[in-house]
Design a protein around this nucleic acid. Structure first.
Lengths: 157, 157
DNA sequence: CGCTTTTCTTGAACCAGTCAAGAGAAGGAC
DNA sequence: GTCCTTCTCTTGACTGGTTCAAGAAAAGCG
C-alpha cells in the first residue's frame, strides 16, 4: 500500500516523506477530510506533524494530481484521493457530510452551456445540496461538520 | 425603481432603509459584486455605510429571497439579485469574472444524480470554470478580481 | 408624537489559509 | 557509506474575509 504511494509520489516528482505518507493514508481512510481532520488523524502516524506541513503536503499532492481539493460553499476545503474521473459531490446542508456521485457526463448536455458568454470552459463542477439520511431521520451532526448554507435560490431539481 | 425595491423589501417583511436601498441599487448595477465592491460603490449613495452593515443587509436580502449568494472556490462571496430562476455561473480562472448561464435543466439528466447515497437533493449547483474572452486575448485582470484556483481534476467537459 | 422593534455603527474577535526563515531530511553523486 | 545539494518540514507571525456583541439610531406602528 505504502509502496504504491511511494511510487506515486516519485512518479509525480515528489520526495517520499513521513508527513506525505501519513496524509495519504489518512485520505485513503477518510475520503473527504478537511485539514483539521487530517492533521488530527495523521498525528497518530507522525506526532509532530504541523498544520502548515499538512497544507504544504496537500498543496503538493493537488499540484501533482494525486489529490483533489473540493470547497463546498461555507465550509473549509476538503480533500480526496479520487482523481482523474469525472465525479461530483452530494453535500448535506445540515452536517456537511459528502458523498461521491459518478458523473453522468455522457448524457449531460447541461455541462456544455448553451451560451458560454465568450468563456472557454475546461471544467464543470457540480454540487448537489440536500440532506443526508442521518440528518433526515433526526440524527444530525453525525460527521460533526456543521455547515451554515443559507444560499437558497439555486437550481431546484 | 426604488419604489419597487421598497415594495420588495416590505413584501418579505424587511424595513426600508437607506443602506438596504443603496446595496440593492449597487447590486442592480453590478450583477456579481463582492462585499468590498458593494461597500465602496454603496458609499457613493450612503457615505457612512460600514462593511458590517453591508454584511447584515446582504444576509437579510438573502434570507428574504431578494438576493443570492454565490461562493466560487477560492474567492470571496459574490451577490446577485437574480433569484428564483435556475441559472448557473461561468467563472474565469484568471480574473474571477462571472457570467450567468441559463440552466438547461429541461435536458439535464445529470442534475438528477443516479445514486443519491441516501441524500434528498433539493438543489444542484453548477460552476463552469474556464477563461473569459479578455483573459484569453491577453488582457487579464480586467475585473481586478484575481482567483487562485488550482483545483484541477474535476469534470472535464 | 412617542414607543417598541428592527437595524445600523463601532470595535473586537475569529477562522481558514498564507507567508517567511531557518532546521532538518531525502536522495543523487562520489 | 558519506557528502552535498535541494526539497521539505517546523515554528511563528500574519492576512483577509467574515462573524460576534453592545449600544446608538432609525423605521414604522398606534
Amino acid at each position: 500500500m505504502e509502496t504504491t504511494w511511494q511510487e506515486q509520489l516519485r512518479t509525480v516528482g515528489l520526495r517520499v516523506t513521513r508527513p506525505r505518507l501519513s496524509v495519504l493514508q489518512v485520505l485513503a481512510e477518510r475520503p473527504h477530510a478537511d485539514v483539521d481532520t487530517i492533521v488530527t488523524a495523521a498525528r497518530a502516524l507522525h506526532p509532530t506533524l504541523s498544520p502548515q506541513a499538512v497544507y504544504g503536503v496537500l498543496e503538493a499532492l493537488v499540484a501533482g494530481g494525486l489529490a483533489r481539493r473540493i470547497e463546498p460553499a461555507g465550509a473549509p476545503a476538503l480533500f480526496e484521493l479520487r482523481v482523474g474521473d469525472n465525479h461530483h459531490h452530494l453535500v448535506c446542508r445540515s452536517c456537511g457530510a459528502v458523498a461521491d456521485v459518478d458523473c453522468t457526463v455522457g448524457a449531460a448536455p447541461c455541462l456544455t452551456p448553451s451560451d458560454t458568454a465568450g468563456f472557454v470552459v475546461d471544467e464543470a463542477e457540480v454540487v448537489f445540496w440536500g440532506l443526508c439520511r442521518a440528518c433526515r431521520v433526526g440524527t444530525p451532526g453525525v460527521t460533526a461538520q456543521v455547515l451554515q448554507h443559507d444560499n437558497r435560490g439555486g437550481a431546484h431539481v
